[in-house]
């Protein structure tokens, strides 16, 4: 019968701990993050958002919690759970959560929301004029969109590509033709042309972020047309372009995060990545919230504030000539002081 006593003992501990926990109070300010189905170790948006938010919350002494969504249908539930949990700032990630975040923000005007990489404009998230989206009238006065100057980091990548290309033909394998993708592409092409006016820039938009097969075919087509640098701008589809470049022994440039870590198969061909530093952006937002200085509207991460930038050259550090590195640095300086424009106009 000792087994029975043992299970009684365990039960007693259980009950006791439940009671103790139930009596615990809640902190005043709480930061919560809803990750998408990619999970907390995706080496991309989710992982860096979580990292930046958690570190900043710890530093500011705020309570922090997060949840990984198991399906697209869970976002609404998870956001609402955090609202119920008394979270003062809820961070959401990516365009899949755009609609749900908007709805939750309208339903809960007392809670702050920060969404990574989604902004709202008329017809695309909110009904009013551009400026009024994030106002009382627009309904999103409690939403901060953490946006990235994709055109700027694209410009830097283009500078590098224009400098490195021997054929003077470069390509981009892009996902769906939506603003962040277009910004990357335009910045990239303009950066390359500023570096080498005779450069020819190829591009294809593939309306799917998860189609590496088509992406690879597009990359191969561009290589067939002489391209020797491929910039993949579109999740898995773009990765297909990187793979095409890698298999042809050419040069590749990653996107969003340092793809040296997320796509190790192409490390040998990957010069760098046009990275959005989500951890910096979310960390800044959390700190601002802690200091009661978080503002609604678009917070743009730029080269100037360190929110975007080229990732490390890694294996290519020795292969990229100093003149190209200097060209990139000069472009970064120009973007920072405003003397260079990326040429992107919405």
């Amino acid at each position: 019968m000792s087994k029975k006593r043992m299970s009684l003992f365990v039960l007693a501990i259980l009950v006791l701990s439940l009671v103790l926990a139930a009596c615990g109070g809640t902190a005043e300010k709480k930061v919560c993050a809803v990750l998408d189905t990619g999970g907390e170790n995706d080496k991309s948006f989710n992982e860096f958002t979580l990292k930046g938010a958690r570190e900043a919350a710890d530093k500011a002494g705020l309570e922090f919690a997060h949840i990984v969504s198991e399906s697209d249908a869970d976002y609404e539930k998870n956001i609402n759970n955090f609202v119920d949990e008394g979270c003062g700032l809820i961070i959401t990630v990516g365009f899949l959560m755009g609609d749900t975040t908007k709805a939750a923000a309208i339903a809960n005007p007392d809670v702050n929301f920060a969404i990574v990489d989604v902004d709202y404009w008329p017809g695309f998230g909110c009904d009013e004029g551009v400026d009024s989206c994030y106002s009382e009238e627009g309904g999103l006065s409690n939403v901060t969109s953490l946006m990235f100057a994709e055109d700027e980091v694209g410009y830097l990548a283009g500078t590098l590509a224009g400098c490195m290309s021997e054929t003077a033909v470069i390509g981009t394998v892009s996902g769906m033709e939506i603003p962040p993708v277009v910004k990357f592409v335009v910045g990239y092409q303009n950066g390359a042309k500023a570096q080498n006016p005779s450069i020819e820039a190829l591009n294809v938009y593939i309306p799917d972020f998860n189609d590496p097969t088509t992406g690879k075919q597009a990359g191969e087509t561009q290589i067939g047309q002489g391209a020797d640098v491929i910039f993949g701008v579109g999740g898995n589809t773009g990765n297909g372009g990187l793979l095409a470049a890698h298999e042809a022994g050419l040069m590749a440039i990653g996107v969003d995060v340092d793809q040296y870590n997320t796509y190790p198969e192409v490390q040998a061909s990957l010069m760098t990545s046009a990275a959005k530093n989500m951890d910096v952006a979310t960390g800044d937002a959390v700190t601002a919230y802690a200091n009661d200085t978080l503002e609604a509207g678009i917070q743009l991460a730029t080269v100037a504030n360190g929110g975007v930038g080229l990732a490390s050259y890694h294996d290519w550090d020795s292969k990229v000539p100093a003149e190209c590195k200097a060209a990139v640095d000069a472009a970064a300086a120009g973007l920072t002081d405003g003397s260079i424009s990326t040429g992107y106009a919405p």
Binding site: L14, L16, S17, L18, L20, A21, A22, G24
Partner: peptide, 8 residues
């Protein structure tokens, strides 16, 4: 502590 918080 985690058990109590989690199960509750």
């Amino acid at each position: 502590d985690k058990l109590g918080k989690g199960y509750w």
